[in-house]
């Protein structure tokens, strides 16, 4: 799995971090998404797909 994030679009809602904290984080100074793991381990795939589906800014890509 290959994950991308679009910092420009991200509105800092933090949904991704709530769902997959091993894969996503947010910058402390403005809440913008930080991708911790562009190629997450198998066990996180379901959570990452869910994060991509619910991200309000459609800022997460999964391939």
């Amino acid at each position: 799995m290959n994950v991308t994030v679009d910092e420009e679009k991200c509105c800092g809602a933090g949904q991704c971090v709530l769902l997959a904290p091993e894969v996503f984080d947010q910058r402390d100074d403005d809440g913008v998404v930080v991708l911790l793991s562009p190629e997450p381990a198998e066990e996180h795939h379901a959570a990452v797909r869910e994060a991509a589906a619910v991200c309000p800014a459609a800022a997460i890509g999964v391939r």
């Binding site: 800092g12 933090g14 971090v17 947010q26 403005d30």
Partner: peptide, 11 residues
């Protein structure tokens, strides 16, 4: 949004 957003992160 980003000035205020730092207060509302998941962490």
């Amino acid at each position: 949004r980003r000035l205020v957003g730092r207060w509302f992160t998941a962490k």
